[in-house]
Amino acid sequence: MPHKQPVSILLIIHTPELDVLLLERNDFTDAWQSVTGSREGEEPLIETAQRELAEETGLRVELAQIKDWHECHDFEIFEIWRHRYAPGVTTNTEHVFSVCLPLACEVELAAKEHRRFKWVNWQQAAEMVFSPSNAEALRQLPERVAH
């Protein structure tokens, strides 16, 4: 299996009322997050967001529905996941996107990655996620949606 690129997306899925979809990781309990994933090849990052949404939730949207926040963060890759990257890679650059769905809905989880999902309001979501960059993006959601 090739190494993952240290370039990824964070995709916040929300409703007009700012209820947010969170996924619980399989590899450790109570690790809630938005959709995330690494770029494959040279695909544009918005296509990474579209692909990861479909892979992790079964939801399919048009590229035009995905909002690029034009924001990115560098963070240290958790030790437990470093084996997925080339030797010596310790930092990842995460690009933030969002997509608004008309209603909270059932999703079809990627069983190898996630064990359950829930829809919660954006404030609760910001408290639940384990990633500081995910929490910060969720706190920005009301302002980002307003523009």
Rank of each mutant, 00 (worst) to 15 (best):
R82T: 14
G88E: 12
A86S: 15
W32Q: 04
H95V: 03
V61W: 13
Y85C: 07
P142A: 06
A86E: 15
E24C: 06
L103A: 15
P132F: 11
Q140G: 10
I77K: 01
D74H: 04
A111P: 04
L63G: 05
R84F: 11
A54R: 11
K67G: 10
A125P: 05
E42H: 02
P44Q: 13
V120Y: 08
S38N: 15
R60Y: 06
T93M: 02
F130P: 08
Q65H: 13
N92E: 12
Y85D: 11
F97W: 10
E76G: 12
A104Q: 06
I46R: 05
A126I: 02
W81D: 15
A49Y: 01
R25C: 09
E113R: 01
V99C: 07
T91M: 10
A54C: 03
A54T: 06
V129L: 06
A135Q: 13
S38Y: 12
L23V: 04
A146Q: 13
P102T: 08
S133D: 12
F78E: 14
T48W: 00
E94M: 07
R25A: 13
H95E: 12
P102H: 07
I80E: 14
V96S: 03
N26P: 09
E55M: 00
S131D: 05
V61H: 14
E62T: 13
F28V: 02
L103W: 08
K112D: 15
T91N: 10
L23I: 03
V120F: 03
K67D: 12
L138I: 04
F130A: 15
V145G: 05
R39L: 01
L59H: 15
H73A: 08
V129G: 15
C100Q: 15
V61F: 15
P142E: 07
P87V: 02
F78A: 13
I77H: 05
G37K: 07
